[in-house]
Structure formats: C-alpha cells, structure tokens
C-alpha cells in the first residue's frame, strides 16, 4: 500500500522538480542533460522502491506511475490552465531587434544559445533574427527578420563573440 503512495509522491515530485529546474535551451539535449535527468530520476527511484525489491512491488509502482501520468495528461487536456502550469508557455526572447532581458535572465539563456539556434537555421548573424521564441520543450525557434515587416532598427545584441559571426 505504501508503495503506491511512494510511487505517486515520486512521480509528482519529479514533475515539479523538472519543471522548476528549468527548460534547457538548445535544439538537442546535451549529454549532461541526460545524465542530470538520469541522476535525478535514479535518486527518486531509490526512495520509491526503498527496501521492497519484489516483482509485485515493481509492477504495482509502474502501474501507479502510469496511472498518475495518464491522469495528469487527461487533466491537462480538459483544463488548459493546468496544462499551462505543467508545461509552461512559450516565451519570446528576441523581437524586432530587441532582447527581452527579463526572459533571458529568468530562463537563464545566454545570447550564445540563441545564436546557436539561429545558426542551425542557416542564419549568420543575430541581426537577421526577427523573432526568437523559447518553446515549451526547450527548443528555440528562430524566425528570419525578412519574413516579418521591419519594425525596429537592429540593435540585436551588439558585437558578438561567436566565431561564426561573419559578413553574409
């Protein structure tokens, strides 16, 4: 019986943890992100399983975690506000040549990471970026400046230390 509570607690605790530790920007997870997630997951797992290493316990806990996960995803569908809390909302990082400094600081994203995302799209400098949006899965979407009407003069970030920063 306590195994069920432990599993539910473990799952919910992990969801909260992953949410507050923060989205990791970048197109792909870096090796270290895998290891961090594995570390956190494994630590929680030890507490969840505790001393009961029976197959019964494993089955019970897996089913419990699956059921909790299902309940959360259902809840997210029927109650959008809850989904917003679980996944967060996309965040605009750069717009019309202006950094949104508040977002960069709170989401702990550096300009290098935005530029890396821009390069992945084949852009050569930050001034070509019209919009940079941090998506809910941590990816940074880049929209070319040309694809939207020019609204502001490009002061985007000034001189940039990237080696790929070159004349187009």
């Amino acid at each position: 019986m306590t195994a069920v509570y432990r599993a539910i607690f473990g799952y919910c605790f992990l969801v909260l943890m992953v949410r507050v530790v923060g989205r990791r920007p970048g197109r792909q997870m870096a090796p270290f992100d895998y290891i961090l997630i594995f570390f956190i997951g494994g630590l929680t797992l030890t507490g969840m399983v505790s001393d009961d290493r029976s197959v019964t316990n494993a089955v019970v806990q897996v089913v419990t975690v699956a059921a909790t996960h299902y309940a959360l995803t259902r809840l997210r569908q029927v109650w959008p506000k809850f989904g917003l809390m679980l996944d967060g909302a996309p965040v605009v990082l750069l717009m019309h040549g202006q950094w949104r400094t508040e977002m960069l600081e709170e989401m702990r994203i550096s300009q290098d990471e935005v530029m890396a995302a821009a390069r992945a799209q084949g852009l050569t400098s930050l001034s070509e970026v019209g919009y940079a949006v941090l998506e809910r899965n941590g990816a940074i979407s880049i929209l070319r400046a040309g694809s939207v009407p020019d609204a502001a003069e490009g002061t985007g970030g000034g001189e940039h230390g990237d080696s790929a920063h070159a004349a187009g």
């Binding site: 909260l16 809390m85 967060g88 909302a89 919009y131 929209l143 939207v148 609204a151």
Partner: peptide
C-alpha cells in the same frame, strides 16, 4: 500573438506569476 503577427501563445502575466511561484519553491 506577439507584435500582432506571430502566434506564440505567450502569457506574460502567467509567466510572472510562475516565476514568483518558482522562487517560493526554491
């Protein structure tokens, strides 16, 4: 939309509330 042209679904009020919540949690 952001800047009347790009559909993002950004919610600044929520975001700020969330960050306050995050601080509390930490």
């Amino acid at each position: 939309k952001v800047g009347n042209e790009l559909a993002v679904g950004e919610d600044l009020a929520f975001q700020r509330r969330w960050w306050r919540f995050e601080t509390t949690i930490w």
